[in-house]
Design a protein around this nucleic acid. Sequence first.
DNA 1: GGTTGCTTGTGAAGGTTTTCACAAGCCGCC
DNA 2: GGCGGCTTGTGAAAACCTTCACAAGCAACC
Lengths: 217, 217
Amino acid sequence: MNKISESAVRRLSLYLRLLKGISGERELISSQELAEQSGSTSAQVRKDLSLFGSFGQRGRGYSVPELIDTLERILGLERRWRVAVVGVGKLGSALLGYRGLSERGFDVVAAFDVDAGKVGTELNGIDIRSIDSLPGVVRERGVEIGIIATPPEEAERIASCLADAGVSAVLSFAPIELGDRDPMVVRTMDLALELERLTFALTSARNAARPITRTGS
Amino acid sequence: MNKISESAVRRLSLYLRLLKGISGERELISSQELAEQSGSTSAQVRKDLSLFGSFGQRGRGYSVPELIDTLERILGLERRWRVAVVGVGKLGSALLGYRGLSERGFDVVAAFDVDAGKVGTELNGIDIRSIDSLPGVVRERGVEIGIIATPPEEAERIASCLADAGVSAVLSFAPIELGDRDPMVVRTMDLALELERLTFALTSARNAARPITRTGS
DNA sequence: GGTTGCTTGTGAAGGTTTTCACAAGCCGCC
DNA sequence: GGCGGCTTGTGAAAACCTTCACAAGCAACC
Ligand SMILES: NC(=O)c1ccc[n+]([C@@H]2O[C@H](COP(=O)([O-])OP(=O)(O)OC[C@H]3O[C@@H](n4cnc5c(N)ncnc54)[C@H](O)[C@@H]3O)[C@@H](O)[C@H]2O)c1
Ligand SMILES: NC(=O)c1ccc[n+]([C@@H]2O[C@H](COP(=O)([O-])OP(=O)(O)OC[C@H]3O[C@@H](n4cnc5c(N)ncnc54)[C@H](O)[C@@H]3O)[C@@H](O)[C@H]2O)c1
C-alpha cells in the first residue's frame, strides 16, 4: 500500500469531524463543499479519499453516512480505544473530565500518579492508581494508548514504562523530545511550541510589511 | 523574503527548546548533534538555519548562546507576549496555572468567563472577568494572543469578539473549524484529532502486516 | 606554513505533495 | 434515448521539501 502523508491523515480526521457535525442534515456532500468547510480545495479532498478507494458518485457527490463509515474504518475508529492518563495534576484532571474523548471513541479506563494523596481517590468515576501498579493495571484493563501529563522530567521514564507494559501508542503533553520506542508510536503536543508558531507568523508578517533595516548607526 | 514552511518553523521552535535545555553545559553544538536530539538530519538543521542567514562557524559548529538569541529573534521571542484565556473551565483553569507559559515568554494577563460564579474570583493571581468586558480589558492590558477554552459552540463567537477587540492571534482548543479572520492568525489544537492520528498509525501498521482480506463469504 | 580533521553553507538532485485539467459517469428532463 | 449540467477519479504538471555531496573555511598540530 502507498504511503499516506501525515497531512493527509490530519485532513481525513478533519473531514470526519465535519461530516459528523452535519450528519442527519444532509444525505450527500460534494468535495467542493467539504473543501470549503475544512479550508482545503476540492481536488485535495478527492485526492485524499482516492488514496483509499472510490467512495463517491460522479455527478452527485459523496454519501454522508457512507463516508463517515469509510473514514472511521480508515482511521481505525470502527472500534473504541482504551486510554490511560499518567499524571493527574492540573492538566491530567482536566483530561479525566473531558467528555470530548469518549465522544470521539476513546475511553479513559485508568489513571496513574505518584502523589500518595491522590492515589486511592476517584475522579469522574476513574480510580487513581499508584504509578507502580501501572504494568499490572495496563495489562488487566487492556490499555492501548497512554497520555502523559506528568512533569517533563518524568516523561521519558513514563514512556519506557508504558512501552514495557505493552501500550501501543503515546500522546505526551510534556514539552520534551521523547526517544523512539519502536514499535510504540509516540507523539508530542507542545502548547508553547504552537504559540511560537503564532508569534513567528506575527513577527514575520510585520517584517514583510516593514523590511528589516538597521535602526542603529 | 522566501516563504518559510510550517514544518521548518516547527523545527526551529524545537531546536530552541533543546538549546535552552543544554544552555550553560556546552558552548558549541554541531548540526549533527542538534539533529540527533531533535530526530532530524544534520542537512535539515543547516538548511533550516540557512534560510535566515549564516550563524555557524565551519569546522566548529554553532555557538549555543548565539543560536538561542538568533532563534528567539526569528521566532519573535526576543520580547514577551500578553495572552488572554477565554473560558475558565477544566482546561482553562489548568492553563492559568501552567508555569510552562511564562517560562517560554507568554504572560497570561487576563481571563474571561460567562459563569457569574467565576467572574470576580481570582485564580493564580489572575482576575476572572466577564466575557462582556473583553473588548475593554483586552485593550487596557494590551492582549495580543487569545487562547480559546470554551465549549465548541461558543468558539466561533469568541473568535470574532477577539478579532474585533484587536487581538492578533488565537490558539483554540475547541474541536471545531474556525473561519478565517484575516489578518488575525488562527490555529486549532484538537486533542482527539491527534489521538486519531495515532489510531491511524496503529491500524495501518496492522493492515500492512496482515493485508486486508475478506473475512466473510 | 602545510597538512589533517572536522563542520558549515549551499547548489543540484531526488522525492513528495498539491494543483490542474479533463475524460468518465450519474441524474433529470425533454 | 439523447442532451446538459454537474461531480468524481486521476494522470500529468507544478510547487514544495528533503537529502546529497562537496567546496570553503576553521582549528590544531607538526
Ligand atoms: N497545565 C497545563 O495547562 C499544561 C498545558 C500544556 C502542557 N502541560 C504539560 O503537562 C504536564 C503536566 O502539567 P500540569 O500542569 O498538570 O502539572 P502538575 O504539576 O499539576 O501535575 C503533574 C502531576 O504528575 C504527577 N507525577 C509526577 N511525577 C510522576 C510520576 N513519575 N508518575 C506519575 N505521576 C507523576 C504529580 O503528582 C502531579 O499530580 C507537564 O509536562 C506540562 O508541561 C500542562
Ligand atoms: N477538558 C479537557 O481536558 C480538554 C481537552 C482538550 C480540549 N478541550 C476543549 O476545550 C474546551 C473547554 O473544555 P473544558 O473541559 O474546560 O470545558 P468546561 O465546560 O469545563 O469549561 C468551559 C468554560 O467556558 C465557559 N464559557 C462558556 N461559554 C462561554 C462564553 N461564551 N464566554 C466565555 N466563557 C464561556 C464556561 O462557563 C466554562 O467555565 C472545549 O472546547 C473542549 O472541547 C478540553
